[in-house]
Design a protein around this nucleic acid. Sequence first.
DNA 1: GTTGAGCGTT
Length: 222
Amino acid sequence: MSHFGRSGPPEIKDSFSLLVLNLTFRTSADDLYPLFDRYGEVVDIYIPRNRRTGDSRGFGFVRYKYFEDAQKAVDRLDGKMVDGRAMMVQFAKYGPNAEKIHKGRIVEVMGRSRGRSRSRSPRRRDDDRDGDYRRRSRSRSRGRDRDRGRDYRRRSPSRSRSPDDYKRRSRSPDDYKRRSKYSVSPDRRSLSRSRSRSPPPRKASPFPARDASRSPRRSTSP
DNA sequence: GTTGAGCGTT
């Protein structure tokens, strides 16, 4: 039935929360219900979705009534192919300030004693939820910045390069692979170079600079 | 129409 997610948390203190990851963007709670219900009594299923687009965020929460059922579901549904994608089922913690959890069992919901070693900023929870959490939340500092900076330094002196240097650099499989993999756009280089070597903002001359260069002084005219 | 690390609504 589609009564999941309609009402708030029914019995959190008496239920076990499971986190389902790697779900498809089209999978809904109703689709997960029969899968999890067959392994035990499911209390509630909730899948966070974007309030603007209404699309699923790719993960959901399943609450079981008993720990054994939850454990069995994790063992059984973990890696289960759903809609053409293997979903990951694991115990979840309730809320960003939930810590009093015992093996997935919420012991104290009001345990706001922070102490989670999570790499998440609880201060911008709302912003991330409503904003584009997918793009900037996970792709902020992965490995791209490192490569980018590296590329920048590499691509800086692109004028005084000799054929020998080119061969030597090209001979490095690492650089070649890295460059080829990320496919550095020449536009960025051009833009970077343009920024770095942008000529000084010369104001408009009262007369053509070219003429001035050739004839800084109008001595005579044929 | 796309994407893919993670932890949720009253």
